[in-house]
Amino acid sequence: MIKIKDLQHHFKIGKKGNERHVPVLKSVTLEIGKGEIVAILGKSGSGKSTLLHILAGFMSPEKGSVVVNGQETAALKEAEQASFRLANFGFIFQNFQLMPGLNAFENVELPLKIKGMAETERKMKVQKLLEKVGLDQVAGHYPNELSGGQQQRVSIARALITDAPIILADEPTGSLDSETEKEILLLIQSLNKKLGLTFVIITHDEEVAAVADRQYRLHDGELVKGEQRHAV
């Protein structure tokens, strides 16, 4: 499903003309199969977010390739990247990244609007999904009227609404308390089982990584294989 081969990337630091090249990813190679949960662990600055950004097509790698569902993503133009993301990826962000001017229902509905789906069809779809993730009671609430857990559920629902096969989660529980963190991780596990979705979770938290089928650790830009799944 996802094949990352010999991925290399570095950042430039310092003023122009006096720049320093700092390697972030050094020959990262990884394969992720359909329906797997894979966690990438790493400290701050280890390059785990850069890996996610390259995987999502937010940036292009300097070397190496990322093939998602048979498509070399670096070969796509900006507009094609956008369409590819809409069809293949759902995103869960640490700080939820909800639209403050839209209520929970409208936030979940947004990707379907971007897709151009007809109103009646998408309203039914959003309603069903909100019931599934337990948000139907707060559908009309705006993000500032929701708890952190509820906001992350809205964010997850938004990631799921397009039926994208891969969910990329960047520190999905980073802004939540431990109780809510457990709730969200259980939801991820249940979605993985029920819907067969592939999750790539970027985290610094060992407990979060524990829900994964496979764990990898990024250290000094190199990917090291870690532990297998533990119960949450």
């Binding site: 507009a79 956008a82 369409s83 993301r85 995103f91 639209m99 971007i114 938004r158």
Partner: peptide, 16 residues
């Protein structure tokens, strides 16, 4: 800016 970033991230075309 953030909202535009989110829209682009979840698949909005630049022309949209």
């Amino acid at each position: 800016t953030r909202e535009i970033g989110v829209m682009k991230a979840i698949g909005a075309q630049p022309k949209l």
